[in-house]
Structure formats: C-alpha cells, structure tokens
C-alpha cells in the first residue's frame, strides 16, 4: 500500500509542534539558569526604556500628585508601586512595603480606585508612600504596561525603568533584585 506524502506530512505535524515547544522550553530553562530569563519579573529592560509621559493628580491634595518630569528629576532611585484598595495581594503586600519604604523612597499610584477607598486603604496602618497619585481611569497604567495590581517599577534618575515586577513585593525579592540595582545607580 502506498501512502501519500500528504498523509505522511500531516502525521509528522504533532511531533514537529511538540519539538518546537520543547525547544522553547529548553531555551527558557537554560536562560533561567544563566539568569537572563525570569518568568516572575515580567520585564527586565536592558536599560533603554523610559517612563511614559504622564501627569496624575494627587490622592490627598495637589502636592501629592506627580508627573513624568517629577519622577525623572529625582536624584536617587524611586520605587513606584501600583496598588488598589480592592486588590487582596495589595493588602498582603502592605506590611512588606512599610519595611521597604525605610530603605528606598516609595511612590504609589492608586489604580482604578475611588479616592476615598484608596485613602482609607493606605492610612489604615500608616501609609508607606512618600507621594500617592491617583490613576482613576487606568489609562496611565496602560502606558506603563501594567497588567494588574500590584506591580512595581524601579525608576533610576533620568526616568529610566531599571526593574519591573508583576507580583506582590516582599523583603527577599526586594533585597535580591531591587536593592542591588538601586545601589548600582551612581
């Protein structure tokens, strides 16, 4: 019985697909081992991404809000944290943020939140944030590339994004990943 080439080719499709997927996974694993790929930090820019242009009102008053210029003109690295009062991981993150805020200036952006809810949320146990802006529509968050809250960005002088993480921060993560980058900044 002769078998058409088409039939043969069709039956090799699964192994070809699996091979490609397997190759991709192998690349990921080897990149994970040499440290160039970390699925938990969703973007680690190689030093060229700048913060998007934005200007947000303050949560508690006009002095509280900030824009791209204010953020880039800092002399020291700043950690920017997107949060919301309706987000449970953000509640869990709060205690760690208060610790982190002792070591680095922390600026918050309340994401898609009612001002009164956000205010109550951050003042409940003492706010860790130096300044808090309100992104009520969530449009600024889109420009930043935020996919959900909580997310954090390390901004070094000049407005460059040195680190971006998409999970709740804790002390270990902060010491391992963020602090070295912040200290490396002149």
């Amino acid at each position: 019985m002769t078998i058409s080439t088409r039939r043969r080719l069709l039956m090799t499709l699964p192994v070809a697909g699996a091979g490609l997927a397997g190759f991709g996974c192998w690349r990921m694993l080897s990149a994970m081992q040499d440290g160039s790929f970390d699925p938990h930090a969703i973007r680690r820019d190689k030093g060229d991404a700048l913060i998007p242009d934005f200007a947000l009102p303050g949560l508690s008053g006009p002095d509280d809000g900030f824009d791209a210029a204010a953020l880039s003109q800092n002399a020291k690295p700043v950690l920017v944290n997107f949060f919301a009062s309706w987000c449970i991981p953000c509640v869990a993150e709060m205690a760690a943020l208060r610790e982190i805020a002792r070591q680095i200036p922390l600026w918050g952006i309340a994401y898609k939140d009612k001002p009164e809810d956000a205010r109550r949320f951050i003042t409940r146990d003492g706010s860790p944030y130096e300044r808090v802006a309100l992104d009520r529509s969530g449009m600024t968050a889109i420009d930043w590339g935020v996919s959900g809250v909580p997310e954090s960005f390390l901004i070094v002088p000049g407005g460059r994004i040195a680190w971006h993480g998409a999970s709740a921060l804790d002390e270990t993560l902060f010491r391992r990943e963020i602090l070295p980058l912040a200290n490396a900044t002149p």
Binding site: I3, R7, R8, L10, M11, T12, P14, V15
Partner: peptide, 12 residues
C-alpha cells in the same frame, strides 16, 4: 517525542 515520532512513522 518518542511516541509522536512513532506516530509519525506508523500512523500513516
């Protein structure tokens, strides 16, 4: 990979 290779070889 082994089973799918076998599939590509024998299934036709």
């Amino acid at each position: 990979g082994g089973s799918l290779l076998l599939f590509a070889w024998r299934a036709p």
